[in-house]
Nucleic acid binder design. Structure first.
Length: 465
RNA sequence: GUCGGGAUAACAAAGUGGCCAUGUGGGGGACUGCAGAUCCUCAUACGGGGGUUCAAAUCCCCCUCCCGACCCCA
């Protein structure tokens, strides 16, 4: 079955056809670095990280690029408050961003262009837009994009220009020819950070940096453009206008947007102040738990964040971890001869089918749960072979390359194995003498060291908790 | 106002014409010194109203409610 993607440009699920056989280019709008990132950003990061991982998993060569907006009004305002230079402040938060990326288990993008380091590309793109007749320099030294020059405005939004103009939310600006025109280049106010340009000192408008950086780093056309669905209008709409004004070609073939993370039914956002920092959540949960929380729902659905939701989702994930640990332990002392080939093949097929269906991670996770139930049963019946246990672990590991929700394989079990076995043996003798207090001390003590003992009808099993 | 996306059992969340979703939580049972894990099993669904169909959570129409976008945003 072929990979299908819900394309927001058409509103339909479409078969994915890359521009170039075997390769996929993905650009994801990154963050404005004036503060720590929150769980809403984390969702977007995990979602697109997983999509990139899946493309690699099925054999694509992936070019994944995400940007940093490190020059803008909010950064300038915040820097004025802290007394830092704007670029110092943004550099500091970019460092924090990478720390948080690790707490989310991100593979990472292939390139992270920054607006401040792309001025040449941005200025030349603005010039190209003016040359193409879509931009004009105003008297104040700013450059605007002329929406009236565009014939089919609102392709991504499915909005008509007149409707947007009449929304009453568009600020009037004497320098603009049409109130819907947007800034490509903003003239600097006195004392503000600025760059030299043919139109005087200034800095880029918000939308132009993405268009310019995509063009410079990835080329005129890309396969997939992603971001949060709050960016659809005006940001992505305007990116399309800018790029196509210059290239005359579609910017991206597929537009993919993740749903918003809400708090108590309201969008998590810095301006509302109802956000949970990634750093704080990561202090309490492992990266696998955070990823599982996000991937347990479809990327496009809205999610409501709460501590309770995290706890509930982690309780479910522990079931998979237990199964994984049990399989590892079982493989050391297998007792059956059934290879579970059918169950494992069914899981692989279901995983692929679900992921191919617009990256349905929730459905893919379900396939893992189904295999877990099957192998748990086979282990409890003592029917699973060593090959079956190892194959199941192998299949789980393959899925995990995409999802990143299972603990990474520890390699030091061989070293502690004999020690644990000795303790289990001694505890067994104590239990035989009904010296339960001492036996429990061994079990509790090992638990504190991260080794969990479980008494089963099949003998004592241990695993790393 | 215009344009999107939603409403599934206690909670979370897939599915999209007929067959067991899944996970958490709850009830019962197995195992058991206890604990935990695991297995078996049970219960509770498709916002409301019409329609199409042998058959609708799924298709069509209407209604209600929620979220998002239109200033900044993942």
């Amino acid at each position: 079955m072929a990979l299908t993607i819900h394309n927001n440009l058409t509103g339909k699920k479409e078969k994915f056809v890359p521009l170039e056989e075997g390769r996929v280019s993905i650009y994801v709008c990154g963050v404005t670095v004036y503060d720590d990132i929150h769980m809403g950003h984390a969702r977007s990061m995990v979602v697109f990280d997983t999509i990139a991982r899946y493309f690699r998993h099925i054999g694509y060569e992936v070019n994944h690029v995400t940007n940093f907006t490190d020059v803008d009004d909010k950064i300038i305002d915040r820097a004025a408050q802290t007394g830092e230079a704007p670029l110092e402040l943004s550099a500091r938060y970019i460092e924090e961003y990478f720390k948080d990326s690790e707490s989310l288990g991100l593979v990472g993008a292939d390139a992270y262009p920054k607006a401040s380091e792309s001025m040449g590309d941005i200025i030349s793109m603005v010039s190209d837009i003016i040359d193409a007749g879509f931009g004009y320099a105003a008297e104040d030294g700013s450059v605007y994009f002329s929406v009236d020059r565009v014939e089919d405005y609102g392709r991504l939004t499915n909005q008509r220009l007149e409707d947007l103009e009449s929304s009453g939310r568009i600020a009037q600006d004497p320098h603009k020819r049409n109130p819907m025109d947007f800034a490509l280049w903003k003239a600097a106010k006195p004392g503000e950070i600025s760059w030299d340009s043919p139109w005087g000192k200034g800095r880029p408008g918000w939308h132009i940096e993405c268009s310019a950086m995509i063009r410079a780093v990835m080329g005129d056309r890309i396969d997939i453009h992603g971001g949060g669905n709050d960016l659809i209008f005006p940001h992505h709409e305007n990116e399309i206008l800018q790029t196509e004004a210059v290239t005359g070609e579609p910017l991206a073939n597929y537009w993919v947007h993740n749903g918003m993370l809400q708090v108590k039914g309201e969008k998590m956002s810095k301006s509302v102040g109802n956000f949970f920092r990634v750093r704080d959540v990561a202090a309490r949960y492992r990266k696998e738990e955070i990823r599982f929380y996000f991937l347990n729902a479809h990327y496009s659905s809205p999610m409501v964040y709460s501590e309770e939701a995290m706890e509930e989702s982690s309780a479910g994930l522990r079931r998979l971890w237990n199964n994984h640990g049990d399989l590892v332990a079982y493989a050391r002392k297998p007792s059956g001869d059934y290879d579970a080939a059918e169950e494992i093949a069914a899981m692989r097929a279901a995983f692929r089918k679900q992921m191919d269906d617009d990256f349905n991670t929730r459905g893919a996770i379900e396939a893992l749960f189904n295999l877990a139930r099957a192998t748990n049963r086979l282990m409890s019946e003592g029917r699973l072979s060593q090959k079956g246990a190892l194959d199941a672990l192998g299949a789980m590991a393959e899925c995990n390359e995409v999802l990143g929700i299972l603990p990474e394989a520890g390699g030091d079990e061989g070293d502690i194995g004999p020690l644990v076995d000795l303790l289990i043996e001694i505890r067994g003798e104590l239990r035989g003498m009904k010296a339960y207090a001492l036996a429990d001390r061994i079990r509790d003590g090992l638990a504190d060291l991260g080794i969990v003992l479980e008494d089963t009808s099949d003998g004592v099993k241990w695993k790393k908790g």
